[in-house]
Design a protein around this nucleic acid. Structure first.
Lengths: 231, 231
DNA sequence: TTTTACCTGTTATTTTATTAACAAAAATTT
DNA sequence: AAATTTTTGTTAATAAAATAACAGGTAAAA
């Protein structure tokens, strides 16, 4: 029997992958597929089939031997776990390029996450509508968050505004913050925080490019005297 | 003695944190500080002081007892490891909101990563300049990448263009790709790929908000009969 | 009908990452 | 000058994540 709330012990990485699986599954569904093998999901996500099966084992979803997983069923099971059944309302704070990019990303995705408001300090943006979302003044931040029962704050303000804005969000009783700004912020216990910094990943890629090049250079140095038998 | 190329075995997570430390250190330096303790770095990054010290141990950097780490020195050591000394040239493919957001993020950061070109398919954008970076037609992608010796491609195109664009980047001999687009892409061996999907993190935050709420609800159910001795 | 190939589900093992524990050394206090 | 505090650097222990190994069952092929 499925233990009640078993999913509360799912590894963080599994949660992330479930979200990714679901998006891949939607695409497959749109392409007319009804079933999918673990190795197919794995290939899309650049992971191993075992990992896929292990994740699905953890959420106690079973496929059919030699037929794979029923895509629609699996989507439903994943959604049951990761979505709030009443939906979660989110706001974007900072309607610059980044904020608007996130808005476009999220719009039309088939999940229970609903962006209901944007905030900015720029008078030219206040009152305007982006992708169907109204942009309020940051001055109204606390009021609107409370009024509309917004639980998730997407922080896409410049670094120097991050700290203050976070404080306002916390004051308003926000439940989770996704910080896209370049500066880490602090939140009290009970507020879930995820820092999502674009520069780190960029510098990481640059590092591994550099490292690969250096390793190639060394390999060719070593190979040449021996007339390069390696590949 | 520092073993040559010791840093090639650094854990991936350490590489990520080094990038983060460095940015935090720049800010501290700007604020007039000269030294910093491990617990101070830790607090900024929401990690433990042990982890900071362990990372610095791995890069064989030593601080001064009871004085902490010399900020400028540490910045230099980290830079020595993660930066390519000749710099790495990067291009942004897709000059929509996301691409321009990344551009703004990176501009003026004191690292050896240089964004030298943008690409887009929209005729209105081609030939224009964003943040000082010229936007080329995607048709010229392969040529420009080769001509300018661009090694890092930042993919910020819509999902349906991701696959084709990646192929062009690979054809042009790109060394690393950071994929911000909502669809995973495939690259051959020798090309370093990092998928950096905004939705996953967003859904993760939503999940933990939901979970925290459910746990609170349960806790209050359990607490009430006993007149709530918990805090 | 038997054999083979294929694919799932699960446990065991290995690897990677984090945290704890503590020795040593310098500044500060008593 | 002895004791205490603070902070580093390192090793040891634990936890989390990924991978390997393999049992078992089903469809297809021989």
């Amino acid at each position: 029997m499925r233990i009640k709330n078993y999913y509360k012990n799912l590894p963080h990485k599994t949660i992330e992958r479930l979200s990714q699986y679901r998006r891949a599954l939607f695409i497959c569904l749109d392409n007319g597929k009804t079933h999918i093998f673990s190795h197919e999901i794995a290939q899309i996500q650049h992971i191993t089939p075992v990992q896929v099966r292990r994740d699905l084992m953890l959420i106690e979803y079973s496929g059919t031997l030699r037929k794979g997983y029923n895509i629609q069923d699996l989507i439903d099971v994943i959604s049951d776990i990761i979505d709030d059944k009443d939906g979660i309302k989110a706001a974007i704070i900072g309607m610059g390029n980044l904020g608007r990019a996130v808005l476009k990303y999220v719009r039309g995705k088939r999940n229970k996450l609903e962006i209901v408001a944007g905030f900015d300090s720029n008078p030219e943006k206040i009152g305007k509508t982006f992708e169907g979302i109204k942009c309020y003044s940051v001055e109204d931040l606390e009021d609107e968050i409370k009024k509309q029962n917004i639980k998730l704050g997407i922080l896409s303000v410049p670094g120097d505004k991050a700290k203050d804005t976070t404080q306002h969000l916390v004051n308003a009783g926000i439940k989770g913050i996704l910080n896209y700004s370049p500066k880490p912020v602090n939140v009290p216990d009970g507020v879930y925080l995820e820092e999502y910094d674009m520069i780190t990943t960029l510098e990481k890629v640059a590092f591994y490019i550099k490292m690969n090049e250096e390793m190639e250079k060394e390999a060719s140095k070593k190979d040449n005297p021996e007339k390069g038998k390696g590949r």
